[in-house]
Design a protein around this nucleic acid. Structure first.
Lengths: 98, 98
DNA sequence: CCAGTTGGATGACC
DNA sequence: GGTCATCCAACTGG
């Protein structure tokens, strides 16, 4: 309507034909459009990258504590923690228990 | 090299200005060009996506076993296993020990 | 300086 | 919304 100026942010990404092909294949498998996956890829990458730095510091520091104390945590707790990091970057690891 | 120049991979991804801005900020922090990160993002996404399906199946099946037996594994082992999955999708979880 | 490649935006078409 | 094509600016190797 009203010949509006969409001018939505388009960014031309130059990727290898191999990547493009795999992207399309993935989209077909997921019943999604390749473009949707590209947006997801960029969006996810940014979120991960921003959280990445925080994770590396927390993990490295916490991991050393686990090995030093010899404590163990359940695999389920590790997964839960990792998922919470994506939405709560200040989420710390749960209590360590034998 | 077959003088062929058939439109090298150019994929225009329409993303929000917020994503584009964050992408540029990330590139500046990493001392890389924004475009390079975009390629990396798509490439990494494909690799992860292909392995994702395998991980979900293995994790779900293995996780149930951990909870059922009540066994625990070290956090370090979980990290090592996750990293190996990216290059070895048939890598199974290490021995469970109390 | 020119050619090839990367890096980035825009217009057009489906 | 999704996809392709073309042009442009900059850096790089010869």
């Amino acid at each position: 309507m009203t010949v509006e100026k969409s001018t939505v942010g388009r960014v031309t990404v130059k990727l290898d034909p191999s990547d493009h092909k795999r992207l399309r294949a993935l989209a077909t498998t997921r019943k999604r459009t390749p473009h949707y996956l590209m947006k997801e890829a960029i969006h996810a990458y940014i979120e991960q990258a921003e959280v990445e730095q925080a994770v590396l510091e927390i993990v490295d520091d916490s991991a050393a504590h686990f090995e030093a104390t010899g404590l163990h945590i359940t695999f389920n707790e590790v997964k839960d923690w990792a998922k919470r990091l994506k939405t709560d970057r200040n989420a710390k690891l749960p209590e360590c228990h034998i």
